[in-house]
């Protein structure tokens, strides 16, 4: 039926064009609109806004990989929490040890998720919702009485150069891997059809395991940036991060089921859009309740636009 489908294909093409340009148009619109509404005070506080982007953008990179292959990760906030506590505890000894410790802590939790997801074949969103509560419990236990404070040394690293440098490095390396190695193609293929990908010779279980470990490690690195910014880890450290990442990626045009239509720009545009949007709403003087409501509505609209209905059934 090759000829028959031609028309449908053209329609698809226009639709794809709209889809791929909507996030960037949205970002520009939101920037302009909020700057006008706040009479330019948003532009004046750009440094403050930028400061909130790093953590979301770094962690979103890892989750981007997970979602590309059709998985989800709700334990990101708890990974961030545990890794932050580890960074704080080690920061007194040696700062590089602290960074390494954070990455390792994230990777271990990622491996924990991957074990149940890949080896025990439980759906990823179930596994990660469980680990979200599990590790949040651990965080509460460790940080409830008093926040875990980092050594004062970490404030030396609270410069735009270092935070931006770390973010840029993560983005560039991830982009290179995703775009110019077989890894990206394999991930997208798993998202679009795991069984067929396996039959094409890809070690799908190994890739899936690796991605959860990698994503945990990346968020562990983001935890360092988080501690540099905040100086200590409270019982609520990292909470809601998973939702923020999810909203950011979807705002960036990421299809929620992953697959072939995923683009790396989703991470960058999405994170920027999310942070600008929330900050704009705060500057408009909206109440927290009102903000959540508006975020919910926007999130729903974007999910509806970007959901790839043909492959929605493959969410793992």
């Amino acid at each position: 039926m090759n000829d028959v489908k031609t028309g449908a294909f053209n329609k698809q093409f226009v639709y794809n064009l709209i889809r791929s340009s909507l996030p960037i148009i949205g970002l520009i619109t939101v920037c302009i609109v909020f700057n006008i509404l706040t009479h330019g005070s948003m532009w004046n506080s750009r440094k403050l806004i930028l400061n909130q982007i790093y953590v979301v953008m770094i962690s979103a990179t890892g989750v981007f990989f997970i979602m590309t292959m059709g998985g989800l990760d709700f334990s990101q906030g708890s990974i961030m929490g545990i890794a932050s506590i580890v960074v704080c505890m080690l920061s007194g000894k040696n700062i590089f040890l602290a960074i390494l410790g954070g990455i390792l802590a994230g990777a271990v939790i990622g491996a924990f998720n991957a074990f149940f997801y890949v080896k025990r074949k439980i759906k990823s969103f179930i596994v990660t919702i469980c680990t979200m509560f599990l590790f949040r419990g651990v965080i509460k236990y460790m940080a409830s009485n008093s926040p875990v404070a980092a050594s004062m040394k970490v404030y030396d690293y609270d410069t735009t150069a270092i935070k931006l440098g770390i973010t840029a490095t993560v983005l560039i390396i991830s982009f290179m891997i995703f775009r110019f190695t077989g890894f990206g193609i394999k991930l997208k293929a798993i998202g679009a059809g795991e069984k067929a990908t396996k039959f094409a010779g890809v070690r799908t279980d190994r890739v899936k395991f690796l991605i959860y470990v990698l994503s945990g490690a990346i968020t562990g690195l983001a935890a360092f940036v988080n501690i540099v910014k905040n100086g200590s880890a409270t019982a609520n450290v990292g909470s809601q991060l998973e939702t923020q990442i999810l909203i950011a990626l979807v705002l960036g045009g990421m299809p929620i089921s992953g697959g072939a239509k995923v683009r790396f720009e989703n991470v960058i545009v999405g994170s920027l859009l999310y942070v600008v949007l929330t900050n704009g709403l705060i500057m408009m003087g909206l109440s927290t309740q009102m903000m959540q409501l508006i975020q919910g509505v926007i999130f729903l609209i974007f999910v509806a636009i970007f959901a790839d209905r043909e492959s929605l059934s493959v969410i793992k």
Partner: peptide
């Protein structure tokens, strides 16, 4: 299901 990744380009 087993030979082709349906929602994927011919290229990939």
């Amino acid at each position: 299901n087993e030979s082709l990744v349906m929602n994927q380009s011919i290229r990939d």
